[in-house]
Design a protein around this nucleic acid. Structure first.
Lengths: 187, 187
DNA sequence: CCCAACATGTAATGTGTTACATGATTAC
DNA sequence: GTAATCATGTAACACATTACATGTTGGG
């Protein structure tokens, strides 16, 4: 039940649904993804609950923009959520489900391929995280000490992604080596 | 769309929905969770698709058990899934969503509490993973080389959990230290 | 003229959770 | 008798994805 809270959080400055979608794509995408088809109804619901208010303004390009602002009640709900205990949520990791049953393949070369492909995917994730992180670093002279309070916590979520994906990278390498050794393959 | 595949994979030996739920609780729970309310309809659907067959046998305790077996077509579908490229799935991590907005709290002590709580949660996860892992180790004299093919891959998923949660632990510690330093708190 | 980006939404479908409903056996 | 474990399921709801539907502005 976090999407409404995230939307509240993102409305520090007035923004439209479209703007919010862009914010997701820019920085939250590393740990949360949301489509416009979810965002628009969420904004409507939050407005109906009195946690947001909406104002329509003409756009220079395309149809009128609906600009949302957090109300005082919205502030409270956001703060309450931040006081909730940390939640790890439900984990569902398809590549681990596949890994769990890989013995069925009964084909070491094909199995190694699986981890080679995974290695690629992980490398791409890490690269995109590193790129985002170096953008932070380039904005601040004495990174990370000089980060503003706002950016301090946002940057931490990036750091988390980097830590976790780097661990997955090491694990993936271990899998590859174990398989190579076990079945006498060449890398 | 992985649950049906996982159910297929778990039916290496004939089992009931109830048995499958227990298998989830025992080992898959670290990366996938499923409730009976999802498992029963999935078994029904897979049977209708001809990927499973079902036989009713009386139970010594409680109502008759419906024992499912994978058909030849079920075998094929399982193998096809294992040849799919590894999928990382959708990540939605509530504690990172909270972290992202923690600056709103404007209360360093309360913020530190958040990470203290998270540290506890992570420690529990790691402990349960380590316990599961030492059970593997105790079953095999020369762990992990002596693992059967079947157990070899299942154990790897545990190893993944350990690697990832350990990385999160280190990250959480880093967050705590940065906050303590930044706001001059005592741990 | 066409495409990309801007900007809004709904509908259908898929996936997952919680609550409810039923009933037998065993151990205390 | 009463609680735990075994064993099946459905219904209602919540959350998420994909496809559809509409229309403007600006650049090539």
């Amino acid at each position: 039940m976090s999407l409404p809270h995230i939307v509240l959080g993102l409305l520090d400055e007035p923004a439209s649904g479209y703007d919010i979608k862009n914010k997701f794509n820019r920085s939250l995408v590393h740990f949360w993804r949301a489509e416009l088809a979810q965002i628009y109804p969420t904004l409507k619901k939050l407005t109906a609950q009195g946690l947001l208010e909406c104002q329509e303004v003409p756009s220079s390009k395309g149809p009128a923009r609906k600009i949302y602002r957090r109300t005082a009640r919205g502030d409270n709900v956001l703060l309450e959520w931040l006081c909730d205990p940390p939640s790890t949520g439900a984990t569902r990791i398809p590549y681990l489900a596949q890994t769990y049953f890989l013995n069925h393949l009964d084909d070491p070369a094909r199995t190694l391929e699986f981890f080679n492909d995974l290695k690629e995917i992980i490398a791409e994730k890490i690269e995109s995280l590193q790129q985002a992180n170096s953008e932070w670093a380039s904005h601040y002279p004495e990174f990370p000490e000089s980060l503003s309070d706002e950016d301090f916590y946002k940057q931490m979520t990036l750091e988390n992604g980097l830590a976790v994906w780097t661990a997955r990278q090491a694990w993936c390498e271990m899998c590859r080596h174990r398989i190579i050794k076990r079945y006498g393959l060449q890398a």
